[in-house]
């Protein structure tokens, strides 16, 4: 799922400084699950903004809503009427949601209330870690189901490097060396011979290096 976290509140207040009435829009999907932008966060953040602006002697009116999902054009309809009354929207969805808001409500500013962080999962409740870099060319079958692109600090395809110490990455003792994990898993699977094979340089064209990506599925198009 997409993992996001709220922007520093000071930054949010600065963005909203010119406005007197806004829509605060949450999203019911990934950011609800990672507790950054669901209906509960909408309520808490709205109260915080109102309190801060009240204190500053510059009150702001906030309409609160949470869309089913902000990443589908159809669901934008849920915000249509509310948008008529406001000067701008503060979206606490991922970057996709903010952009869809901006695109749908073209004449009004859409501000991001979250930083979209990474693709990951909750390691435990309240602890989120990255697992996928969306590189567009999966190698998990070669690396024991552990992604060297997302989890190795250098995204090495043939690791580890000299910075692997006691199973940890040199950047921090809290970061596992992905290649240590890969070695351990391949050993457990009895597939250590995979490591003898050199993985050739990756075609990064499927990742961001090839520019904005797009998938067209003719079979699905209506």
């Amino acid at each position: 799922m997409i993992i996001a976290e709220q922007k520093p509140i000071e930054e949010i207040l600065e963005m909203l400084a010119p406005h007197k009435k806004i829509l605060l829009a949450g999203c019911g999907a990934c950011v609800t699950v990672c507790q950054a932008g669901g209906e509960k966060e909408v309520g808490v953040l709205a109260s915080q903004i109102r309190v801060a602006r009240q204190e500053a002697g510059n009150p702001i009116e906030i309409i609160e809503t949470t869309l089913t999902r902000q990443c589908e054009p159809e669901f934008m309809d849920e915000a249509k009427d509310l948008m008529n009354d406001v000067e701008a929207v503060l979206s606490i969805a991922c970057g996709i949601g903010v952009q869809l808001m901006a695109q749908t409500f073209y004449d009004k500013p859409a501000y991001p209330g979250l930083n979209t962080s990474f693709l990951g999962f909750p390691e435990e409740h309240g602890v989120f870690t990255e697992r996928c870099a969306a590189c567009g060319n999966c190698v998990l079958h070669l690396t024991g189901g552990i992604c060297p692109i997302a989890r190795c600090s250098k995204s090495l395809l043939n690791g580890p490097c000299g910075g692997s110490q006691d199973g940890k990455c040199e950047i921090s003792k809290d970061v596992d060396c992905a290649w240590q994990l890969i070695y351990d898993r391949l050993k457990a699977l009895g597939k250590l011979e995979n490591l003898a094979e050199i993985i050739p340089p990756k075609k990064w064209i499927t990742s961001r290096d090839g520019g904005p990506r797009k998938i067209v599925r003719e079979d699905l198009r209506i």
């Binding site: 309520g43 109102r50 309190v51």
Partner: peptide
């Protein structure tokens, strides 16, 4: 005592 209640009271 949820965060929403606490902030709402101040709000």
């Amino acid at each position: 005592a949820e965060t929403g209640y606490l902030m709402k009271a101040l709000d």
